[in-house]
Design a protein around this nucleic acid. Structure first.
Lengths: 395, 395
DNA sequence: CCTATTTGTTTGGCCCTTGACTAATCGCGG
DNA sequence: CCGCGATTAGTCAAGGGCCAAACAAATAGG
């Protein structure tokens, strides 16, 4: 019971080559052959057809051979940057981010608009659609060259049904995101959960490049995450895999809206951290303020960040013990606190880790910052669109 | 950098067919073609070569066509049971189990010997080797027809290095199991961790048949487990993935040898349960006694099992929330307590579950009982041996 | 009996690999 | 500086694996 679509071997090979080029940028034909598992001669043929279709260009630059020392240098080939662009939309905790990137995954435009906390998705679609149109204008891109729009939605996402999962009460639950935004933009739209896309982006272009076993942890308005094992993103049955916000880190802790006590989300997460500082500093505080004040030595801010780090670290330790990843990548707005957060986090994680897991585990800050999820959305579009692109060119 | 071994497409196709037949038993050619993704004509050819090599036999029995109603019935083909047998050895908490099964995965012999708790692996190898030789004699199997021996070792296993992982202090840590037993038996030996093999067996022949997202939880001397997601077993970097014995279920609980407080293993697990009953019942109690006494209404025994179930259920809830599996399978000796354990377990799991995860999660007792790990060892041998078998026959 | 449906087999043709060959570079010794 | 072996990249011809399409066989249902 495989995929019922009958795609020829040739098409799948072309697809594999394009995907590889997308991930690695420029490569020689021999390099491609090694990575994709085809022979050099076959790859040469495939590249020839791709060049004929203007999907791939050959550069003058020569690449040093694989052996390092001697050997004929390879001719660099890459995806033709002019062959298309993809748009990433990230509906965040209180922003919408939009980026446009070309098929070589170079970001050309990045825009952002602030939204009120707890905004209504319906209104946000309108804002996002305007933002996207503005970005397209600004980039001067012909709409026909846009391969698609990827959307990052907060919280878990049910990929099978194509809507945000309706577990916790959320304004996004059950909203057909792709349909809503697709209708407004008249472009193909794909959607997935923010943490899954963040992990995808960090794996392709960020701190988890080449990792097959890692955990992505997003410390933001809420707390979420994603697990990659055997090089594959775990989704679970409903898209709930990786959702670590309600992992219990202290069974005697405060009540959580989920009905348990001491969920990670009751200790970490933007609103919790800010509320802890509110009695002292009032409610006009931003996270950016807190971080700079902490760097300047403010004890309260330091403590708020360090407490969050400690509890997150406990969760990291537990996840490390049961998943044994090579790395845990910390993303989300709180990650901007750097060592103020990561120091206590690492310490707590080390204390909770078994030697088996802890000895190999590295804990890193994500490399893509606030753009991670939007970049993941772009990556999703580029990955999913390859097939259509090739099919269209096949004529 | 794929696998450097160059195996021809033809070999891989043959392998896929054999693997499928191993999993499903008897099938028609058309059925195989659908499942393995090849065309009917190609499968016919492959089956012809396998029949010529005596690896596959065609039965007189006819199978009803896929459409249900009309259509020519298919000819049933299956692996030739006479083409080989595999041996599974399970080093348990205080037993060694040995089984012999043929390539159609029918168990022909099952033997078991008791060992002292905390036995020395060196001595256990001798016992196991004797047991295996005895089983071979009893089965009247020609040693040349034995494809290999699979060994199940307690605790995590580092597949890359081929030895039990050396995280917690364990008499098994670092022992080259395959070499030790292979030297004594002069047969090819493969080894892996007990929980990984238990999960493999439950997935192939037991309660998790066809599941691509599930958690296996072994409640035995220690507490361990395994995660399957996207149809693949998670191993992590060191084979530590799935090791849930030190998942913290109560941060204020008793100290654990790992240095944390309230690990699952401090509440569940055979020694803990028995020790709780020791003041009242003395130390001559066996788990079997406890279970029968509990069924007869003994409040102490009921409570001991129910307490274990409750704590295990908390862990199940947490794992369900972060992994979102379709099922959690409970194996190990404690699972024999049935509803006495599972009732409280299910209740605690339900209380801790988020709706997103809990609504789809089923919690079941493993179907293979104490043979699970030995059967997994057999499955491993059969799976790994296919390649050699085909290579040898290719001549 | 006839149609619809599915299975198993046969045949021409495409995709891919193997092996050999040429091209291009590095490192070495002279 | 030049020549030469070693090594790698890219291309070309021969052959094998696999598929699609057509066909024969076998059954259910009307």
């Amino acid at each position: 019971m495989r995929t019922p679509v009958r795609e020829s071997r040739a098409d799948r090979s072309r697809l594999a080559v394009v995907r590889l080029l997308r991930e690695r940028g420029t490569m020689s034909r021999a390099d491609i052959a090694r990575h994709v598992g085809l022979s050099r001669s076959t790859v040469s043929g495939i590249i020839a057809t791709l060049v004929a279709d203007d999907l791939v260009v050959e550069l003058e630059a020569k690449l040093t051979p694989a052996g390092g020392g001697a050997g004929r240098p390879g001719a660099a080939v890459m995806l033709n940057p002019a062959s298309g662009e993809a748009i990433g939309v990230d509906f965040g905790y209180r922003h919408v981010h939009v980026i446009i990137a070309n098929v070589a995954h170079a970001v050309r435009i990045a825009k952002s608009v602030r939204l009120p906390v707890g905004y209504d998705p319906g209104a946000a679609f309108d804002v996002a659609a305007d933002l996207v149109r503005g970005a397209i204008d600004e980039a001067g891109t012909d709409p026909s060259r846009i391969l698609g729009v990827g959307v990052s939605v907060p919280g878990p996402f049910d990929t099978r049904r194509g809507v945000p999962s309706s577990g916790m009460p959320s304004p996004w639950a059950g909203i057909p995101v792709a349909v809503e935004l697709g209708g407004r933009l008249n472009l193909p739209v794909l959607a997935d959960g923010d943490t899954k896309l963040g992990a995808l982006a960090e794996r392709r272009w960020g701190a988890a490049r080449g990792y097959d076993e890692f955990v992505y942890m997003k410390l933001h308005g809420g707390v979420g995450g994603a697990f990659v094992s055997n090089g594959q993103l775990a989704r679970g049955v409903n898209g709930g895999a990786g959702e670590i916000g309600h992992l219990v880190v202290d069974a005697t802790g405060p009540l959580c809206r989920c009905g348990n006590r001491g969920c990670l989300e009751t200790f970490v997460g933007l609103p919790v951290v800010m509320r802890a500082l509110e009695p002292t500093y009032g409610d006009r505080l931003t996270l950016r303020n807190v971080i700079t004040m902490a760097w300047q030595g403010d004890r309260g801010c330091i403590r708020a960040l360090s407490d969050a780090g400690t509890m997150a670290g406990r969760a990291v330790g537990m996840l490390g013990n049961i998943l044994n990843p090579q790395s845990v990548i910390i993303g989300g707005a709180l990650a901007a606190a750097g060592e103020l957060l990561m120091g206590p986090l690492r310490e707590a994680a080390a204390a909770a880790s078994l030697p088996l897991a802890g000895d190999v585990l590295t804990i890193q800050v994500g490399a893509l910052g606030p753009q991670a999820c939007a970049l993941g959305a772009v990556a999703m579009v580029l990955g999913e669109t390859d097939e259509k692109l090739l099919a269209a060119m096949g004529s």
